[in-house]
């Protein structure tokens, strides 16, 4: 059984213009220990694929025309909301692009982490390392201990002191680490990271990538890294899926796809990145290439 298996996922979204199909037959299989990169341009459907895995697309606007998502055997699209809450924040951790808007500025970091830990412990007491009949106070104390450990693990120095600080007292990179800590506290099996480093400086980005890589080595989790940055994919990911207009054009081990791309679009994406050797005026946009490819 795969950790995550998406088969023939078709999603349509309703808007003023009427219903339009956004995802066309997405197939994707993620195993433990794999870091999947999902690359594509704005509007290619990569973020919606990520949200679908946690079933976070509002039912009022989104409709699945066909397909299935299986997470450790659970049929995600047909699960009850109660079952989904067990998965979210516990089995499936999520990190989003903007670390500032995803932390509540009114609460201390510790409070937010402890809340997540307690929530996760409701479904799996082993998160706190306690037996099921521990008292409330014991649970709180244990949750705080877990939060401190987690902060230390994502590379925040003096976690025991800084756990009582507020989000605004940290830099953007630090806040992204906290979101990772929050996503990891429930010991998830799958981490979905949607453009986690796009808002960060390159030096901080390098640290975050290292952190994610370490987590995969230590905990043997699966990662879906949604990004538009092929550099990030080349560095971090073991596998890659290239998306274009709601379709996956090609998938495979990262070295195969990036070194010998089989699809013209992947080649075009690679050719659009200015490198040390690109002469001025030689860069080619995708528009011309896709037009030629038809």
């Amino acid at each position: 059984m795969s950790l995550l298996e998406i088969t023939n996922l078709n999603l349509a979204m309703r808007s003023y213009e009427g219903e339009t199909q956004i995802l066309h037959g997405i197939d994707l299989k993620i195993e433990r220990g794999e870091i999947w990169g999902m690359v594509g341009e704005t509007g290619s459907g990569k973020s919606l694929t990520g949200l679908s895995i946690s079933r976070l697309i509002p039912a009022a606007t989104g409709r699945y025309l066909a397909g299935a998502i299986r997470f450790e055997g659970t049929d995600v699209l047909n699960a009850t909301e109660r079952e989904m809450r067990k998965l979210r924040g516990r089995k499936i951790g999520m990190i989003f692009q903007d670390p500032t808007t995803n932390l509540n500025p009114a609460f201390r970091i510790g409070t937010q982490l402890v809340d997540v830990a307690l929530h996760a412990a409701e479904h799996d007491p082993s998160v706190l390392g306690l037996s099921g009949n521990a008292s409330r106070r014991e649970r709180r104390r244990a949750a705080r201990q877990v939060a401190i450990e987690m902060l230390g693990k994502v590379g925040i120095s003096d976690p025991a002191e800084r756990i009582d600080a507020y989000p605004h007292q940290f830099s953007g990179g630090m806040r992204q680490r906290m979101l990772i800590a929050m996503a990891m506290i429930g010991k998830p099996d799958l981490l979905i990271a949607d453009e986690p480093t796009t808002a960060l400086d390159v030096s901080v980005q390098a640290q975050i990538l290292r952190l994610i890589h370490q987590l995969v080595l230590e905990r043997d989790i699966g990662v879906l890294m949604i990004t538009h940055n092929l550099g990030v994919v080349a560095q971090l990911c073991s596998h890659v899926a290239v998306m274009y207009r709601g379709r996956i054009l090609e998938t495979g081990p990262v070295r195969t796809v990036l070194k010998q791309p089989s699809h013209a679009y992947t080649r075009a994406l690679l050719a659009a990145i200015p490198t040390v050797h690109t002469k001025r005026g030689e860069l080619r946009g995708i528009g011309d290439i896709m037009a030629e490819a038809g």
Binding site: V202, A206, L209, A234, Q235
Partner: peptide, 27 residues
């Protein structure tokens, strides 16, 4: 500057740029 950076900071920046070549991954 790019081929022979003199400062540590520039060297760090250059090293942190994710290269789209999978073979140049530090991991």
């Amino acid at each position: 500057i790019f081929d022979r950076p003199r400062s540590d900071y520039t060297r760090m920046l250059l090293a942190a740029m994710p290269d789209p070549d999978p073979d140049k991954s530090p991991f």
